[in-house]
Design a protein around this nucleic acid. Structure first.
Lengths: 214, 214
DNA sequence: GTCCCGCATTTTGTATTCAAAATGCATAGT
DNA sequence: ACTATGCATTTTGAATACAAAATGCGGGAC
């Protein structure tokens, strides 16, 4: 058994991201350091270190004397984040090894088609989506890019549980993933990149349709 | 007079970035927290907070029990960072208001042509380059994107003083900026974006030519 | 009744202290 | 001579203590 030897700040960061994904923190609300630290069973020091790291990812904001608060959400920011992620994933795909892409294409197709009928919670859908995109980018050798992507995506997690999963959007998502996989199977990298961009933009619009006005 | 009221961690972060730009920290060397804190006249707490923020930007690395060290440099990482910045600036330009771009185009041309003959230190060249790119992106409404760009560029600062400024590369840089500005003047946004990408890639190759093998 | 001022309380920002892990050196054993 | 082991020292990681700023409430002036 591998005993856990990671800095508390990292464990705390992960735990906070988990709770955020579970919808335990409302956007725009203040963080009370003493309360949260007690709740987590740690002191304020490593908690603050985790908060600072999360602020660097855009999950939190801070202002002098007023501490940290969960960053408010807005349709504008969501659009901005999607545009960024779309561009970065496109770059990642563009700089991937074509041979590797051909290899994983069948698996991508399988995953995209698999279990489309099952009733799925929102969390399940998101996890499967992450997994799919993770596999898609598994051939990207640009480590800094992959790092950056995970950080930007962390900043997007706040938006995930703002809408409920519906059948039609999930089906569309699945169809778009199939399309990308088919392009890769056909060795059509530019087409796959275009389809990937469309997937992000389409997913964004589907979410925006269900998000309340600011 | 506006008195300074920012958290120490931010002032420390900026100071460390300044010193890094001045070449005071060698890549790969460890940070001794106690020594550095004493040198800056602060306690270890806000210093560590600044170090964590910088680690989030890729300037520093950390490992359990061994503290922080300035991230080592490599040709591979430099290429990765340039690819990222090129893609992000291209996106920023793409999503800028065309009207605004037309407005600033003459000024961009001026700046690109201005003072090309003057003998310039490396720091001066870099500052002018930053200024130019800043103006180029001034019409981008995507705030998250601009934020991200400054953070990624901070991670690139480690490479700036690894080579000495030479006449020929600086002239090329100037010429490429002119080219971008001319495209904007001609309302040729796609052309400007292509030229911008070429500018980053070209600049990268000019630097790589003078960087030692890993 | 409403607005403003001042004090008590809460909360953040920073310093200090304590604990645990890593490093380096000296020594003993082969 | 070289390696391994144990101890002293250094350095990091985390908790606690302290200081300063912000918040909220109550009383008084108008």
């Amino acid at each position: 058994m591998a005993i856990e030897r990671r800095p508390l700040r990292e464990q705390i960061r992960d735990e906070l991201m988990d709770r955020l994904t579970r919808g335990e923190f409302a956007a725009g609300t203040d963080v009370n350091e003493a309360v949260l630290a007690a709740e987590l069973g740690v002191s304020r020091t490593p908690l603050r270190e985790a908060l600072i790291a999360l602020a660097g990812e855009g999950v939190l904001e801070s202002s002098q004397g007023r501490g940290f608060r969960f960053a408010p959400v807005s349709r504008k920011e969501f659009r901005e984040l999607v545009a960024i992620v779309a561009a970065l994933e496109a770059l990642a795909l563009e700089s991937s090894d074509p041979g590797h892409l051909r290899t994983i294409a069948p698996r991508l197709l399988d995953l995209a088609q698999g279990f489309p009928d099952q009733v799925a919670t929102h969390a399940t859908v998101d996890r499967r989506d992450d997994e799919w995109h993770g596999l898609l980018l598994s051939g990207c050798a640009n480590e800094r890019l992959l790092d950056l992507l995970t950080r930007v995506k962390a900043g997007m997690r706040r938006y995930e549980n703002l809408v409920v999963a519906e059948d039609e959007p999930v089906a569309r998502e699945s169809e778009e993933h199939c399309e990308i996989a088919r392009r890769l199977l056909a060795d059509d990298l530019p087409g796959a990149i275009t389809a990937l961009r469309a997937n992000w933009i389409g997913g964004m619009e589907r979410m925006l349709a269900h998000l309340p006005e600011d």
